[in-house]
C-alpha cells in the first residue's frame, strides 16, 4: 500500500523532509512507525517517544493503534500549539 506521509514542526526538521510517499505493509499506525524506525537513525530518533507525538489519518486526529485500511495521508506532529 502506498501512503503520503507528512511531518510537521520539529519532527519535520529532525527527519529532514515535510512529505514523502511510503510503500508499507503495515496495518496500523504503530506498524507504520515501526517500519519507519527501522529505516534510518533519523527516524529512530524522531519517533523515539510516541507520547510526545500525535497522528492524523486523512486529516483526522487518531490514536497510534488506529488501522490504516483505506488511508491515503498520514501526518505525524508534536502536540499542537494554536491560539
Amino acid at each position: 500500500m502506498k501512503l503520503d506521509v507528512l511531518y510537521f514542526a520539529w519532527l519535520r526538521e529532525r527527519i529532514g523532509c515535510a512529505r514523502e510517499t511510503v510503500e508499507t505493509e503495515a496495518t496500523t499506525v504503530s506498524g507504520l512507525v515501526e517500519e519507519l524506525r527501522a529505516r534510518e537513525e533519523r527516524y529512530t530518533l524522531a519517533f523515539s517517544d510516541l507520547a510526545s507525538l500525535r497522528v492524523a489519518i486523512d486529516q483526522e486526529l487518531r490514536d497510534f493503534d488506529a488501522p490504516l485500511d483505506g488511508a491515503r495521508e498520514i501526518a505525524f506532529f508534536p502536540p499542537m500549539t494554536g491560539g
Binding site: 510537521f8 508534536p78 499542537m80 500549539t81 494554536g82 491560539g83
Partner: peptide, 12 residues
C-alpha cells in the same frame, strides 16, 4: 479558544 489551542494543527 480552549480547543483552538490544542486541537487545531498549528505549531509555534
Amino acid at each position: 479558544m480552549d480547543y483552538l489551542k490544542s486541537r487545531a494543527p498549528f505549531w509555534k
